[in-house]
Design a protein around this nucleic acid. Structure first.
Length: 829
RNA sequence: GCCGAAGUGGCGGAAUUGGUAGACGCGCCAGACUCAAAAUCUGGUUCCCGCAAGGGAGUGCCGGUUCGACUCCGGCCUUCGGUACCA
């Protein structure tokens, strides 16, 4: 029985049809049945912020994830492939101000809208596990964990220097300060000292750094970025007494240095504007106070500081060199950062470029203590920053830098004047925000008891969802019924904390929550965590390399240390493999509203269908590279589907004509099975879907070119078509499903087994050998697969176009690469 | 400065990891179908010489290893991304 296919397929119609079938059959559900014997696979794409509109970056991200999930299902895995919403955050407040709509309403509306768009793409999510982080059922556990961290001292409140924007009435992250001004209102940002909540990520610096080595499935780039971000450096902390403080009442001036070998070359000290010594010295020194004030108004964004002119003033006090006992003047300098190390440095102008520049500007002495191993260095002209041999350093003279570092450190610690020290660039995670649309920090401030964590039985601290932000102070801060609370300890009237969490808190643990998303007893159930975690494949943008991806690693370890799971159960790391997809570009620039170069996925889907959109995004570039959007390329992808559709018509109607196509059948079957091999390899190694799809196009071309002459030929043609359809499922599931049905194949395409390679189809009796003479291609010969050197050489000599290169020469060496080539090394006779 | 990635036709990009460079697609050219156009199909398409057969050159640059190098080694150049007065 053959059926006539319509000349074109209707993408809109078949996509709607198959999406309904999949939903009815629940083919996307992950099974938590312990009796389910299938191996498990957790595939996760970074969940979106519900802005209301899907953009091409989302499409790319989720099509990649869906291809992986669908492939794994066909390979027989029980796949967890969930979706949710990173629903708290600033855009909702901005939209609320603009539209006079409470953020909650706006957010929930957007979620509904985006869910429809995602479903329209035919993405195989287990929607029964959907979560939205703005729901109290979700954030209550984050609040709970925070109270546990408070009890352990891992969460704390402290005064800190932060970026403050007056008009916006909030703290800003460093990323939100662009060229010293607020990204939203262009007001110069102030540095302000505020009491903020922190989580002690620095306690985990060592583990976070060391465990990077185990992340073999992560791009080196991301691992490197995290390594730099954590920024471990080893050196010494040195204590410089302050002159005139003979009783030792005052604290010493403590500095951190990675170059203790240069200690004898110190000619001055430099402290940050915020350093207590500077602050104290400024008290009765108006000029100094003015300078410090000036420093405070400069952005803390470090990239800006790099280009800043170096400025400083003497404090009028001296430190005492811990070894020589000499007086060393103390300066305040704008290049010293309060937030790194101790906020103070020893300055060695002879061997540090920065110190050198500063010393030259203010006429401070330059003392050489390191000499190059060979030759000399003119330290008056430029700093000599290489390691070398110590000079002018008393007992340490003659030591090499590396040895001197240890010797000096030992000498200092022996005398109680310093110690070995490991310093991290990483700072504690500031998690409080003076914003409304976020998870409330579960703390009650009592005049007597201080900051008291909200007891477990009073959680969640629910965020009132009907408030209207105005752009100034958070409406939470003045919302009486929210603020009023009794102290959980003493019962006295107290105030509720009105800051909310950084939204990175929610996204740090959602991957674990998907394993038991409706759990209302605990943060995580142990069994499902054990079943699914860690995530086998995580996919998302590289922009989260040191933010989300670092916080999530940290949070995972926090949950582990809270006893929610062990390393054995949940993995020591949350993400085994990471794929960072490239950006989607148009006209060479990242698509963005402000550039006006966006392409609306909805329009592409309406014009070509979801399958074409999926196919193009996966075919146009390797997943980790940027993708340039080309409408002509989209049309090309669409054309390919129609070519396959016509091919399908041919296959369905195929009847043998004539006879005797054994050799052609063997060739075709070899093409079919090498294609299966290539596509399978792409899925198992690096997800080069652009190459996999190219291979499928080749197969399609081969099938199109094949004219079956015998029943065997028809059979081979159908075999090839069936394999092609099955391998198209991860990329264009609706289209492949329709083809599967038209072929009258059993079951659903999306639950069919991934095609197997028939090894016997790969072997061939005859192989083509490329013949090279002295490494240059001179022709090719067809030889039996098991031909040896002599047989191949004899054959080559018989081949006219090759033989003439072998006249009047002596073959001195023969290299045969079986099945590939024959290289003849010759020299004139 | 440091870390990372990359440099291959007009374009996006392939090359089973040392074995036919340019798969596949886009674009372009020619042809078929059509009154015509669109759509579709067929063929061609790295550059140079040549009517052709054929030959030569060729994967950022310079050298090296090898029978053989886009691939490995040494030295540069360029572009992109990240990051930095980190003491």
């Amino acid at each position: 029985m053959t059926q006539e296919l319509p000349p074109r397929f209707d993408a809109q119609e078949i996509e709607k049809k198959w999406q309904e079938v999949w939903e009815r059959e629940q083919i996307d559900r992950a099974s938590d049945d312990p009796a389910d014997g299938r191996p498990r696979y957790y595939c996760l794409a970074m969940f979106p912020y519900p802005s209301g509109n899907l953009h091409m970056g989302h499409v790319r991200n989720y099509c990649l994830g869906d291809a992986v999930a669908r492939y794994k299902r066909m390979q027989g895995f029980n796949v967890l492939h969930p979706m949710g919403w990173d629903a708290f955050g600033l855009p909702a407040e901005n939209a609320a101000i603009k539209n006079q709509l409470p953020p909650a309403e706006w957010t929930y509306g957007n979620i509904d809208q985006m869910r429809v768009q995602l479903k329209r793409l035919g993405l195989s999510y287990d929607w029964s596990r959907e979560i939205a982080t703005c729901r109290p059922e979700y954030y209550r556990w984050e609040q709970w964990l925070f109270t546990k961290l408070m009890e352990k001292g891992l969460a704390y409140q402290a005064e800190a220097e932060v970026n403050w924007c007056g008009p916006c009435h909030t703290v800003l992250a460093n990323e939100q300060v662009v060229d010293g001004v607020c990204w939203r209102c262009d007001t110069p940002v102030e540095r302000k000292s505020l009491k903020q909540w922190f989580i002690r990520i620095t306690d985990y610096a060592e583990e976070l750094l060391n465990d990077l080595d185990a992340l073999k499935g992560w791009p080196e780039k991301v691992v490197g970025m995290q390594r730099n971000w954590i920024g471990r450096s080893t050196g010494a902390e040195v204590f410089f007494p302050i002159e005139g403080d003979t009783e030792g009442n005052n604290p010493t001036l403590d500095i951190f240095t990675t170059r203790p070998d240069t200690l004898m070359g110190v000619t001055y000290m430099a402290v940050a504007a915020g350093h207590p010594l500077a602050q104290k010295a400024a008290e009765n020194h108006p000029e100094l106070a003015a300078f410090i004030e000036e420093c405070a108004h400069v952005s803390t964004k470090e990239a800006d500081m790099a280009t800043m002119e170096k400025k400083g003033m003497p404090l009028g006090i001296n430190a005492i060199h811990p070894i020589t006992g000499e007086k060393v003047p103390v300066w305040v300098a704008n290049f010293v950062l309060m937030g790194y190390g101790t906020g103070a440095v020893m300055s060695v102008p002879a061997h540090d470029e920065r110190d050198h520049e500063f010393a030259r500007k203010y006429g401070l002495p330059i003392k050489q203590v390191i000499a190059p191993k060979e030759g000399e260095a003119d330290v008056d002209t430029a700093a000599f920053t290489e390691p070398g041999v110590l000079v002018n350093s008393g007992d340490f003279d003659g030591l090499a830098s590396e040895d001197a570092k240890q010797a000096v450190t030992r000498a200092l610690s022996g005398a109680g004047k310093g110690e070995k020290r490991i310093q991290y660039r990483l700072r504690d995670w500031l998690v409080s925000r003076q914003r409304y649309w976020g998870a409330p920090i579960p703390v009650i401030h009592c005049d007597d008891c201080g900051a008291v964590p909200v007891p477990e039985d009073q959680l969640p601290v629910v965020l009132p969802e009907d408030l209207q932000p105005t752009g100034g102070a958070s409406p939470l801060a003045t919302h009486e019924s929210f603020v009023h609370a009794d102290c959980p300890k003493c019962g006295k009237q107290a105030r509720r904390e009105t800051d909310t969490f950084d939204t990175f808190m929610e996204s740090s643990w959602y991957m674990a929550r998907y394993t038991s998303p409706r759990n209302d007893e605990t943060m995580l159930h142990r069994e499902p965590v054990k079943r699914w975690m860690p995530v086998d494949q995580y996919i998302g943008g590289v922009e989260h390399a040191v933010l989300h991806l670092l916080y999530a690693r940290f949070y995972h370890k926090l949950m582990r240390d809270e006893g929610l799971f062990t390393d054995e159960e949940g993995g020591s790391e949350p993400f085994t493999n990471l794929l960072t997809q490239g950006m989607v570009l148009k006209d060479g620039a990242k698509m963005s509203k402000s550039k006006g170069n966006t392409v609306d996925p909805n329009e592409i889907i309406a014009t070509y269908g979801a399958d074409t959109a999926r196919l193009f995004t996966l075919f146009a570039a390797p997943p980790d590279k940027d993708l340039e959007w080309h409408e002509a390329g989209v049309e090309g992808a669409h054309r390919f589907l129609h070519r396959v559709w016509r091919l399908l018509g041919k296959v369905v109607a195929a009847v043998p004509e004539g006879g005797g196509d054994d050799a052609a059948v063997i060739d075709l079957r070899r093409t079919i099975h090498t294609t299966i091999q290539r596509v399978t390899h792409a899925f198992d190694h690096g997800f080069a879907f652009n190459v996999a799809i190219a291979a499928l196009m080749e197969l399609s071309n081969a099938l199109q070119a094949f004219a079956p002459a015998s029943p065997k030929g028809v059979e081979a043609l159908r075999e090839g078509m069936q394999a092609l359809i099955a391998m198209l499922v991860p990329f264009v599931p609706h289209f492949a499903s329709e083809c599967h049905e038209k072929m009258v194949l059993k079951g659903l395409a999306v639950t069919a087994a991934w095609p197997q390679v028939d090894e016997s189809a790969l072997v061939s009796d005859e192989v083509e050998l490329v013949v090279q003479v002295n490494g240059k291609k001179r022709g090719s010969i067809s030889v039996p697969a098991d031909a040896d050197q002599d047989a191949a050489l004899a054959q080559a000599r018989n081949s006219g176009s090759i033989a003439r290169w072998l006249e009047d020469v002596e073959v001195v060496k023969v290299i045969l690469v079986p099945g590939r080539l024959l290289n003849l090394v010759v020299r004139p006779q």
